[in-house]
Design a protein around this nucleic acid. Structure first.
Length: 419
RNA sequence: GGAGGAUUCGCCUAGUGGCCGAUGGCGCCGGUCUUGAAAACCGGUAUGGGGAAACUCAUCGUGGGUUCGAAUCCCACAUCCUCCGCCA
């Protein structure tokens, strides 16, 4: 939810942002009038309520005829109060709906849609590989990835990681956690089933509702990322941010329905229903958010360097941002079998948008509670196995293990195909 | 799955229909005293909405209800604790 004060002071700023995103500016006008109506309705309610209270006090003291007269008046008032309260709470709900409909105010993202991203830099050399095998072919030869049995057991877009595949993933995630700890992040293992409020608060029940698994019998949702649990972790709290941002690295399994992506990226483990991820999450003061965003991006690049894969960093265009984000940087790793870059990390600055919904605050210099800013970013996920296997493949079918991962594979420098 | 108990302002706690936004202690902040500190004493210390302000309204786990009036009575739900059962 955006800051209503900002909306009142500078509605054109919000309209401009909506335009940049390719979203409706009418939503802004709807929100403005809902805001006004709510304040008016609240005031009407408060006026009658105040009268009711003060007369109520007189009733307590009065007696005889005077008391009877007062009681008659209060009886009427009780009805008025009830009606005014109902009107106020309805106005409140209307406002909330309108409030939820407006996306966060874009900050620095390039204009345009999905294809209008700006490449900030390309890092690392693209390997020259004759007729590169794709990750599934390599993974099957190594007995590392088994999608056939994944489909047999659970359906399409499921897989088993076995042997060196399992070790690679565990090593990579462990490496991510180690790095996060070195940088002062609190390592966390988070719930993967959350209540509707948590899902709603992080904004995932909006446009992405169909992406999410829901357990109807228990009214719980399976998270698509540990961001959900990490964001909701501090909901309805006032944090102490006086000594800097509060940083977490959450390790969890993630679940996505991938509804509407039938026939897209069906091979291998690029797009799957279940994967593991280490996600960074920061709570900070709004004025520090842009700097924190760059820090998360730097963390991602540090990890990509450790697994020695070439990548580029893109500044995602306004039209392709999630509704919570004011800016988003993706790192895309080179995938030799596709001769193109594919997204492996994404870091978003949500400023106060998410925290306002979740009611996460901090105390400013004057001790006054203010809404905090939240940011998130990927530190490692199952998908990384794709560029790791493909970029480090060798003509004989073996795969070189990046130095940083070798300790997790019993010191092996090369993974050999199974006979 | 069954039975009981609990939920009040950072923590503990008082409060069974109007004088209660709510007692007291701890903690924290400021002051007096002190060379400094501690102790003692004095004062201040929830959040949100509206308002330039005075101020006002809401909030006692959440949502409903009873009542002129609810922290207090009734109902539902959530969470935590204890016991029994079941599973590991």
């Amino acid at each position: 939810m955006i800051d209503l004060r900002l909306l009142r002071e500078d509605p054109d700023l919000i309209r401009a942002s909506q335009r940049l995103r390719g979203e409706s500016t009418e939503l802004v006008d709807g929100l403005l009038s809902a805001d006004e109506e709510r304040r008016a309705a609240t005031q009407r309610f408060e006026a009658v309520r105040a009268e009711q209270k003060s007369i109520g006090k007189e009733v307590a003291k009065a007696s005889g005829d005077e008391r009877a007269a007062l009681l008659a008046r209060t009886k009427e008032l009780a009805l008025e109060v009830k009606a005014a309260e109902a009107a106020a709470s309805e106005a409140e709900q209307t406002l909330r709906k309108a409030h939820l409909a407006v996306s966060n105010v874009v900050e620095g993202a390039p204009p345009g849609g999905e294809d209008d991203f700006v490449v900030l830099r390309e890092v690392g050399d693209i390997p020259r590989i004759e007729a590169p095998k794709d990750h599934l072919e390599i993974g099957e030869a190594l007995r590392a990835i088994d999608t056939e049995r994944g489909a047999k057991v659970s359906g399409s877009r499921f897989y088993f990681l076995t042997g060196v595949g399992a070790l690679l993933q565990l090593g990579m995630l462990q490496l991510a956690i180690q790095q996060a700890v070195e940088h002062g992040f609190t390592p966390s293992i988070t719930p993967t089933l959350v209540r509707p409020e948590s899902m709603e608060g992080t904004g995932f029940l909006g446009a992405h509702a169909s992406e999410i698994y829901r357990l109807e019998a228990d009214d719980l949702y399976l998270v698509g990322t540990s961001e959900v649990a990490l964001a909701a972790y501090h909901s309805n709290e006032i944090l102490d941010l006086s000594s800097g941002p509060s940083r977490f690295a959450g390790w969890s399994t993630c679940y996505r329905r991938e509804a509407g992506s039938h026939g897209k990226d069906v091979r291998g483990i690029l797009r799957v229903h279940q994967f593991d991820k280490v996600e960074m999450f920061s709570f900070c003061k709004p004025e520090d958010a842009a700097e924190e965003h760059l820090r998360l991006l730097a963390m991602e690049e540090e990890m990509l360097a450790k697994v020695e894969i070439p990548y580029r960093v893109i500044d995602v265009a306004a039209g392709d941002l999630g509704s919570s984000a004011v800016r988003k940087f993706d790192c895309e790793a080179w995938v030799p079998s596709q001769s193109r870059y594919r997204e492996v990390t994404s870091t978003s600055n949500c400023t106060t948008f998410q925290a306002r919904r979740l009611n996460i605050r901090y105390r400013d210099e004057n001790g006054k509670p203010q809404t905090a800013a939240t940011l998130n970013g990927t530190l490692a996920t199952t998908r990384w196995l794709i560029p790791i296997l493909e970029n480090h493949q060798q003509p004989d079918g073996s795969v070189r293990v990046p130095k940083a991962l070798q300790p997790f594979l019993g010191g092996r420098e090369v993974l050999e195909p199974a006979k």
